[in-house]
Design a protein around this nucleic acid. Structure first.
Length: 304
DNA sequence: TTGCCTTTGCTGTGAGCTGA
DNA sequence: TCAGCTCACAGCAAAGGCAA
């Protein structure tokens, strides 16, 4: 048995009007096509639905019994299609974005403001959570876009670079300062660092470069969040090597920032999307606004 | 004769497959 | 990846058949 929604709907219209010509007109098809459609449905069901003569069309006993089943089936399908249509419309008018707290607090507000101006009808849903959670929420379909320093690629998602950032050294100062000149890695040979956990991919990259300049001193602190690194550095408890995306978070605080050089490490800040999902065009525009607005905010090079 | 359903033959369209 | 081919399906017009 393999009948279609079209056939059931055609059956209902013929049953209601008791006339193939008028039913065909209502269904916007030729009467011959409708006749064929009903005959095929009867063939698939294995019984006749209508007794038709050249003068009248009447439901058979089987047709009368099949009528409520067909009505329920057509109604259920149309209800589901309507619900899906509403969800698709909602998807086109909503955008969910996830990022770590530092990104949400200091990088996204100007982007969100610009986006709201361009898309006043689109509801933006912001989720601030850990980087690993952002990645799994994108894979699970709870987020349209994930943002962050996804140093390692993950399966099932598309990772696209949005802008570059580099690394800066943060130390205590009477007020916020951005050093004019970069400082070489080997200048920190004997420094005590405030580090992220050893399994953090960014910290692993930093440790690799520290090892290359012969740094071997144990860390002063190992903490979970960049905000904590900034706070401890401001309190003079050591040097924190931070991504330059943390620059806006250091402004206004007793922190001196120096770009790390020899070598300058250039990294990508990424957007993450589920490979299988197609997003509304406003998602592309949100990312384009990040590309436009954020590079200047995270540049450790002093301007003016 | 008229009105209505069925049958037949044809066309257009889209999906799936294949080879370059 | 893309063009070309095949096939299934939907639909139409015209002719035929039948009952009132």
């Amino acid at each position: 048995m393999n009948f279609s929604h079209r056939q059931l709907k055609a059956f209902l219209v013929v049953a209601r009007l008791r006339n193939f010509s008028r039913a065909a007109e209502q269904l916007h098809i030729a009467q011959s096509g409708l006749s064929l459609m009903i005959r095929e449905l009867e063939g698939q069901l294995g019984f006749r639905l209508f007794d038709r003569t050249t003068r009248q069309v009447t439901l058979t006993r089987f047709g009368s019994a099949f009528l409520p089943v067909a009505e329920q089936n057509v109604s259920s399908v149309e209800d589901i299609v309507e619900q899906l249509g509403r969800s698709a419309q909602h998807a086109a008018t909503a955008l969910s974005v996830g990022a770590p707290p530092l990104t949400c607090s200091y990088l996204l507000p100007p982007v969100i403001a610009a986006f709201a101006q361009q898309y006043p009808g689109v509801r933006l849903h912001l989720v601030d959570t850990e980087l690993s959670e952002v990645s799994s929420m994108v894979r699970g379909g709870q987020l349209d876009i994930g943002l962050g320093m996804f140093i390692k690629p993950a399966a099932g998602v598309i990772r696209k670079p949005l802008f570059n950032f580099s690394l800066v050294a943060a130390s205590a100062a009477p007020r916020f300062q951005m050093a004019r000149a970069p400082r070489a890695w080997n200048a920190f040979e004997s420094a005590r660092f405030i580090k992220l956990p050893f399994d953090n991919p960014l910290q692993q990259l930093i440790d690799k470069h520290l090892a290359q300049v012969g740094h071997s001193a144990p860390p002063a602190f190992v903490v979970n969040f960049i905000e904590t690194q900034i706070g401890l550095a401001e309190a003079g408890r050591g040097i924190a090597i931070l991504p330059s995306t943390a620059i806006p978070a250091c402004k206004g605080r007793g922190i001196r920032l120096e770009q790390l050089a020899a070598p300058v490490i250039e990294l990508d800040f990424y957007e993450l999307r589920d490979r299988a999902r197609e997003l509304a065009p406003c998602a592309d525009d949100f990312c384009n606004m990040m590309r436009k607005l954020l590079p200047r905010m995270v540049s450790p090079v002093r301007r003016g």
